[in-house]
C-alpha cells in the first residue's frame, strides 16, 4: 500500500482525488436538483419524496457520511493544494495579468469557499432549521410529514434569501464551468479530438445546474407557474 500512499501524497494524486470527489459531488448536485425540482409538482410530491428519503434510515446516513467524506476530502485537499500554490510564488508580480485563463479557473478557490459557506447556510436553513427558524418550523402536512414544500415556499418568498441562493448557485455554476472540463484534463481522459466536446459539455452542465437550481427560488418569489397566486 506504500505505493498508493506515496501516489496520494503527490501533487497529481491529490489533484486526481479532488477531481474524482468533485465528480462525485457533481453527481450529488444532480440528484439533489432532480429531487428538489419536484417542488413544481406540488406539496404532495415533494413532501412524499422528503419523507421517502428520511425513511431510508441507516442507508441515508451511509449516503450522508459518504457525501460528507467526499466533501471534506475535496475541500481539504483543494485548500492544501491552494496553499502550496501560493507558496510556490513567494514574490508576486508587480504587473500581473493572464492570457487565456477563464474566469472560472481563476476563481476556483473563491467560488469553492463561497459554496462551502453556502452549504453551511443551506443546511442550517432547510435541514437543521437554525437559520430563519420560522421557515423550518412550518409544521406538518395533512399526513403528518414535515411540510418541506411549505418550508421551501416560505423560505423563497423572502427576496433576501432568494438573492443569496441565486448568488450561491451562480458561484457553483462558475465553479463547475471550469471544474467539469478540468476533471477530464486532470484524469488524463481527454485528447485533442475530444477537447472541444468536453469544454462544451462542461459549460452545458454549468448552465443546467444554474438554470435548474435558480428556477425554484425565482419561480416561488415571482409567483410563476404553479406558484402563481391566481392559480
Amino acid at each position: 500500500m506504500n505505493w498508493l500512499l506515496a501516489a496520494l501524497r503527490s501533487s497529481l494524486g491529490r489533484k486526481m482525488v479532488v477531481a474524482l470527489t468533485g465528480l462525485g459531488l457533481l453527481g450529488f448536485v444532480f440528484a439533489h436538483l432532480a429531487g428538489n425540482l419536484q417542488v413544481f409538482l406540488g406539496r404532495e410530491a415533494l413532501n412524499a419524496y422528503a419523507q421517502g428519503l428520511k425513511d431510508l434510515g441507516a442507508l441515508l446516513w451511509v449516503a450522508r457520511l459518504g457525501l460528507i467524506a467526499m466533501f471534506v476530502t475535496h475541500v481539504a485537499l483543494a485548500l492544501q493544494l491552494a496553499r502550496e500554490n501560493r507558496a510556490a510564488r513567494p514574490t508576486r508580480y508587480v504587473h500581473g495579468g493572464v492570457q487565456q485563463a477563464s474566469p472560472g479557473s481563476r476563481s476556483m478557490v473563491f467560488t469553492g469557499v463561497m459554496i462551502l459557506l453556502f452549504v453551511a447556510y443551506h443546511l442550517a436553513h432547510f435541514t437543521f432549521g437554525a437559520a430563519h427558524a420560522s421557515h423550518y418550523a412550518v409544521g406538518s402536512d395533512a399526513l403528518g410529514r414535515h411540510d418541506v414544500y411549505g418550508m421551501v415556499v416560505a423560505g423563497f418568498s423572502e427576496p433576501l434569501v432568494v438573492g443569496l441562493y441565486v448568488a450561491a448557485i451562480a458561484m457553483l455554476a462558475l465553479h463547475l464551468s471550469h471544474g467539469v472540463q478540468s476533471v477530464f484534463q486532470t484524469l488524463g481522459l481527454n485528447g485533442p479530438r475530444y477537447e472541444p466536446i468536453i469544454k462544451r459539455t462542461g459549460c452545458a452542465i454549468a448552465v443546467i445546474v444554474f438554470v435548474g437550481n435558480v428556477s425554484m427560488p425565482l419561480a416561488i418569489l415571482m409567483g410563476l407557474g404553479p406558484f402563481s397566486t391566481g392559480a
Binding site: S11, R14, K15, L81, E84, N85, A87, A88, R89, V98, Q99, Q100, A101, S105, R106, M108, H178, Q181, S182, Q185, T186
Partner: peptide, 14 residues
C-alpha cells in the same frame, strides 16, 4: 517546490 496545475492553461499561451 513548483505549484500544482489547476488547468489555467496560461503555460500554453506563453
Amino acid at each position: 517546490g513548483f505549484g500544482n496545475c489547476r488547468n489555467y492553461y496560461e503555460c500554453e499561451a506563453v
